[in-house]
Amino acid sequence: MTTTATPRPATGRAGGGDRGATRRRPSGRRHYGTHLFLVAMAVLWLVPLLWTLYTALRPKEVTDRYGYWSLHGPLNLENFATAWTQGGMATYFGNSAIITIPSVLLTLALASMMAFAVSRFSWKFNLTLLIMFTAGNMLPPQVLAAPLFEMFKHTPLPYSISASGSLLDTYYAVIAVEVAFQLGFCTFVLANYMKALPGELTEAALVDGAGVWRQYSRIILPLCRPALAALGTLEVIWLYNDFFWPLLFIHSGDQLPITTGIKNLQGQFLLDYNLIAAGATITVIPTLIVYLALQRHFVAGLTLGANKG
């Protein structure tokens, strides 16, 4: 008697694999709510900017006749040329560069050193120092305005350095305050990033005879380039747009940064909003250039660790 083996249906691992493949397929759901929210936020941010640019391109006579919320009249660049010459934009751009560039470089340099100390070494006061640096950002700047003003006023400097004979009415006062207030945030961000780096890197360097400075400058600092680029972009935007501290500490009109120089576009009896809009648009150009130049590093720094775990 002969028997014929009937093939069994493949319901084992292959079936499980098919079901697993089915489960791994994307569901195909469309996040309409998320997309609608993002579009609404983009419109909310873009409409004022675009309307400011549109106002800057319109002559004042046209807006006086038809109103600012109209679409009549020609468009030209006369307001930009007038704002550049009448407002002294070239001088104020230079003043902003004198304040912003050293402030950003000093902040990143000091913050990276402090972050290296509290993240790569275990000692008694590393957590305490990190908390102190971070807690400094909790104080509103206005609380310290009067004490800092009096302190700078009574800090003597040679007249060859300061025309006022004190730290007041100098770039040094603004730079020192900007660095002090931004140091805590940058230290906190860089310390968290450095803690994520493998500890074997510095241990291997220590075995090879590398000192602390070489570990910091040759090993850790190059690996922090994305984080430094992201922080550098943010710091340039924040310090360049700062209005409070320069207005408080600098009294000479020819030393004010660009954010306070826009006041020169205001008339004594009449406000030319078209001219002010043109001046405000001009002030945005440097920060826009910095962001576009560092956009790739900025996005990479913001998304660090997004794919971990």
Rank of each mutant, 00 (worst) to 15 (best):
L221F: 14
G28L: 10
P26T: 07
A10H: 12
R8G: 04
T55D: 04
F80Y: 15
V290Q: 07
L302E: 13
N264C: 02
I220H: 03
L148H: 03
W84E: 03
R65L: 14
N192T: 06
L275W: 10
A196E: 12
V39S: 11
H31I: 00
L183Q: 06
E150H: 00
G17M: 15
G136D: 07
G73L: 10
L197W: 05
V179A: 11
P222Q: 11
I175Y: 06
I250P: 03
Y193F: 13
T91S: 13
G88R: 02
Y172K: 05
L148Q: 00
F244R: 04
F93M: 12
R225A: 15
N76E: 13
V143A: 05
R65G: 05
F243N: 07
L270I: 08
T134D: 03
P26Q: 09
Y291W: 13
M114F: 13
M1Q: 11
V118Q: 06
N307R: 14
G232Q: 04
L256D: 00
D208H: 03
M1I: 13
V143K: 06
T107Y: 05
L53E: 00
Q255T: 00
G261L: 10
L228G: 07
D254K: 08
T128G: 12
A210H: 04
Y159I: 05
A90T: 14
A97D: 02
F149S: 05
I175C: 06
N76S: 11
Y171E: 08
V47E: 01
G267M: 06
A115E: 05
V104F: 00
P246F: 10
